[in-house]
Structures are given as C-alpha cells and as structure tokens.
Simulated assay, not measured.
Amino acid sequence: MKFDRIPIGKFSLMTQLTQKALRFYDRKGLLVPAAKDTFTGYRCYTYPQIERGVKIRTLSWMGFRLDEIATLLNAEDCGDRELIGEMMQNRSAQNEQEIRRLAKIQQILLKQTDTLELFSMSVSEPTIKEVPEMRVISKRELGSYEVTIGKLIGELFAFVEDSNNPRNNIKLTGPCMFICHDEEYMETGADIEVAIPVSGNVCVDDFSVNVETLPAIKAVSAIHRGPYHEVGTAYTYLFEYMDEQGMELAGPSRALYLNNPDDVPEDELMSEIQLPVNLKE
C-alpha cells in the first residue's frame, strides 16, 4: 500500500514530541513508525499517526503514566468507553488531591514564617511507651495508602454495624489503626492492614474479617496534628530520634487515628505514630 512518509524530524514538529520521546515510544510499542529504512533504521510516519501522537502528548501532559496511556489508547481502539471514563475519573480524583496539596503549600509560603519551625510544631516530642497486647478485628490487602486504608476502614465499620448479624456483640476498645507491613514506602501494591481493637463476641461467618491479637510492643511514639498526607513529617521525626538513640525498628509501624475526619477540619486531625523498637537493657 502506498502512503505518505513523514520523516521523524517533521513528525516531531507536527506532534510537538521530541525525537528522543518518539524513539522511546517506538521501543515501548506505543507509537511505532509506519516504516523504517532497512539499512539506516531511519523512521518514517504517516499522517493518520499524527492524531495518535497528539493524543499521547496530551495524555502525558494530563498526568497519565505511560502504561496508563497505552491502556487508554487500547480502550479507544476497542470502543471501551467505560474503562476510559473510569480512568479519567481516577485521574480527576488524583488531580483534586494534588490541588489541595499545592494549596496547602501556598498557604505555608504566604505566611512567610520559618517552615521548619512550623512543621516541628505539628508533631509532639517522641516518647517511649509500653503498648499492651490487644484483640482486634482486621482486614489486610495490597493497594495504595490513599485509597486502600479508607476502603478497609469503611468495610470494618460496616461489619461492626451490620444489623443482619445478631450474634455480634462488639464493643470498640480503642481507635482504628493502620499497620504497615512493608519495609519501605510503596506507591502501589503496599501491604496494608487496618485494625480496630474490640471486646465481646465476634462472629465473622462469611465476612473476610480477621480476629487476631496484636502483640505487646515497646514503641517510640509521637502525635501528629494535621492532614493525613502530611503525616510523613512524624515518621521522619521519629526515625531521626531512633537513629540518635541507637534504636532499630522491631516490627510493623502503627498509625492510630485519634479523631474522625467527618467531625473535625483537616488541620485538626490527630494521628499517633508508633514505631516498635528494641530497647537496650
């Protein structure tokens, strides 16, 4: 079939994609040139490929990752509008979160204060405490912190409040907590467990809810005041303290949610971070 060949340089100008990006998209199979010279490897494109190139550039500008762009383009080829809509909604939610983060940063910058002092004020001084063993109901799965923690909390409270299970006689004995089973921060695929301390009769039946006893621990603890996405400040503070004291982490960290985000403003949220440690005798 005869077609108009567009050299890579001209195609780069038409799509506003660099030649380096075009070669990368070629290797990834995302935008493969219609023809390549057998001897020189010189790439040529066709006019119908211009639209695909522009879509790739636009989707990248919107914040989609390369694998997401490939999925979106494939969904368009297959006519899967539902998948496209779902991915656009997810991207929108992520953008809203980023907008809130940037707005918070702008507030801090406009205050023209010592930001290091401001951050330290949001975290209490570290303390060492004995945390007794506790019986909990819990759920555990892989996911992202932003989505999965809230999802599991909702599922656990739905289980507690389930009126269709009269054999449950559950009393909450402590705040809901997030237990981190990973040894590093994970953008996706994090090993997340959410637990609620309870007493009384618990009948799990067919629910994917666990009943377990968390071990007693010695922990370095601090209280963080402010939005959940800023709680990393407390972790940094505690790990620096542990390093100064020659302590090492001795188990999964715990984050206890001390008040309800439905009841207080974001800036007044309270979280207690507990890092299990081995103390020198």
Rank of each mutant, 00 (worst) to 15 (best):
K218G: 02
W61M: 15
G143I: 10
L256T: 01
F119S: 13
E86S: 13
F239V: 08
M134F: 03
Y185A: 11
T15Q: 05
C44R: 12
V160L: 13
V32D: 06
V202C: 07
C78V: 08
T113L: 13
A190W: 02
G143P: 12
D191A: 08
P276C: 09
L13P: 00
I99M: 12
Q49W: 10
C78W: 14
L256F: 03
Q16N: 15
T127N: 06
S92T: 12
E76H: 03
N165G: 00
C78R: 15
I6P: 10
G232L: 08
F207Q: 11
A21E: 12
R5D: 02
E82K: 13
D206S: 14
F64M: 06
Y237F: 12
T38P: 08
L214V: 08
M242R: 01
L279Y: 01
L59G: 01
V147E: 14
A222L: 05
R135G: 05
T38E: 15
C176M: 12
Y185D: 11
K2I: 07
V136L: 09
R27H: 11
T236D: 07
Y45L: 05
K111C: 04
F3A: 13
N168W: 04
G174N: 03
N260Q: 00
F178P: 00
V131F: 13
K28C: 10
T148Y: 00
V147M: 07
F24C: 04
F64L: 07
